[in-house]
Amino acid sequence: MSTETDETAEADGPELDIDAAELEELRARVDELEDELAAVETEVDDGQKSMVIIATKGTLDMAYPPLILASTAAAFGWDVTVFHTFWGLDILHEEHSQDLQMSSVGNPNMPVPNAIASLPGMDRVTTKMMRKRIDDNDTASIDELLDTCFDMGVEMQACQMTIELMDYDEDDFYDDVTVGVGAATALEEMADADIQLLV
């Protein structure tokens, strides 16, 4: 039985209606496709994850999540970009980053009602409390986390439109900050990234 099948297959072989030129063309096409496949596999399989974080907030507490996630992801060897926009720009602002404040109003975890939280000077009080907690717990400072991010090659970007909107100057930011980027740059990177976060 099996011998019969083999014979049929052999007999069919040479009768294929392909001339030498067509065959050559098909071989070339197969080579080309194999190359393309190899390139795609390398791209997908290089094990290098990437993450893009959009940082929009500039209060002392909300500056932490993007910086902690970015530095940790860099420790995993990922490609990390943090795109800072609106109040998030203050994290990269040399002067303002030293003096980030808490916002007492509208924070349900504050131990005082909003009516009292809105009194003048309350933000200063809660900021002082938060800074003390950070010190007491040996939590890394914003400065330390920023340095770590820069050291580990995290790409820190400052949105050009909001730099102008906030009337900041490009020189107000740390040296390693990338300026001159906008929403399209961010979206393009987000489309290629494995993880995208808005903070």
Partner: peptide, 14 residues
């Protein structure tokens, strides 16, 4: 010792 998240991981990587 004394450092908290994320510094132990970050410093280990470095």
């Amino acid at each position: 010792k004394g450092l908290s998240c994320p510094m132990p991981v970050v410093k280990t990587k470095q």
